[in-house]
Design a protein around this nucleic acid. Structure first.
Lengths: 222, 222
DNA sequence: CAATTAACTAACTAGTACGTTACTTGCCCC
DNA sequence: GGGGCAAGTAACGTACTAGTTAGTTAATTG
């Protein structure tokens, strides 16, 4: 019955496994970041790059594994960036400020990553825990902070009783909150924490805060 | 054909609108906090309190409005708590430390609230923006911080150039991050930010940090 | 160049999810 | 004590959604 002639497939994808895989990962990152794990739709991810859902199952196994792959790549990016950070030539005070600023900038530049971290925390980090790549590797940033902290204490400029992991938490807190919670904070307090014209203010504020803590005479206030 | 006799409905709910409404709100808070907006299931919320989905539509109109109602109540709780905070009798330094500790404690005690805030930020605060109750009222905490800040500056103990809203952001950052991101942080750095035996350490750290910032000679580090 | 396999497509399945319709039951007040 | 209405129930409908099955097309290689 005059079935439609089979499509020529001329509009089909080029056969390029690497590209298809990479494209899936790219749009999956966007979709998961935008809509959350449950909110993201496998069909939509496929449609956006003009492939089919089947390819996602072909390359990643399933929605869950795709999300894990997205996280793995997102974390690989910061680790790589952290690996390249070079503050060894600076004195401890300048080094900490520089490190804080780099952390600040990274958060500013990767709002999607921040959203993925929020989402993964809603899921109690189950994907990170289930990923050998993620749960085994540790962060280069901690090593760097540890060395600066040691040097600063040896020189007598850092007096606070804090270790590298906790200091990293302190720095990340501010950077993370500012980006992750900008919507509710803006709606409730009428202040856009990510407004371009206040960026430098917050960047300086972070450095001031961390250094005041590290170098301050904490006994003073108690 | 011998249809089962109609259920006696003896096991039906008491007719108590207020209780039904309140119960829906309670379990909806739990479910939304646990699974996110998209992840939570209207049927499950109804089933958990032995009512039917229809009641949710009866009292709230829909899933979206239910989530908004959940947020409204959650924020009402902190506002009420903030209203009751009494630090007027303390000197500025002690008042800020006390305020930071109260914020810290509130975050510690209400992890569900923290999750709801994370979730609402994923949704770009659309429910808060759409709620007159939430977007119009402002936080009592800001007023309190403003007054302490003024007093501290008048006395010459606070030197930092910061306003109440930004200081609130700084304090909240640390409290929020510690609870909200404990899963990914724990998985990546092997440190439980919410471990009971480190609670006091972080509580003190927060106060030290904020006060060092406020009272410190910021010119020193630059 | 033929056999093999990697890459890709379409259609389907089974289960799920929100929201609605139609109906029943108990309470309150005149 | 009965009319009226608030409170509650059950079952349905439509749309969606993760994952699967079965088959096709292009590249590679012996």
């Amino acid at each position: 019955m005059t079935a439609a002639p089979p499509p020529t497939h001329s509009s089909g994808r080029q056969r390029d496994a690497a590209r298809t895989r990479a494209e899936i990962l790219d749009v999956a990152t966007e979709e998961f970041a935008r809509l959350g794990y449950t909110g993201a739709r496998v069909d939509v991810i496929a449609a956006r790059i003009h492939t089919t859902k089947r390819m996602i199952y072909y390359y990643f196994g399933g929605k869950e594994q795709l999300f894990t792959a997205v996280l793995e790549r997102a974390y690989a990016v910061i680790r790589q960036q952290e690996q390249g950070l070079d503050v060894g030539h600076l004195d401890p005070v300048a080094a900490i400020r520089r490190l804080a600023e780099l952390t600040f900038d990274h958060h500013e530049e990767h709002p999607d990553f921040i959203r993925l971290v929020s989402i993964e925390n809603i899921h109690e980090a189950e994907h990170i825990i289930g990923s050998a790549t993620l749960s085994e590797l540790s962060s280069p940033a901690i090593e760097v902070i540890g060395r600066i902290l040691e040097e600063g204490r040896a020189q007598g400029v850092f007096t606070a009783d804090v270790d590298a992991v906790d200091l990293h938490a302190m720095i990340s807190s501010f950077c993370f909150f500012r980006v992750a919670n900008r919507h509710t904070f803006g709606a409730l307090f009428g202040r856009d924490l990510t407004a371009a014209d206040r960026r430098q203010h917050y960047r300086t504020m972070l450095g001031d805060m961390v250094l005041a803590y590290l170098t301050g005479d904490t006994a003073r206030e108690r």
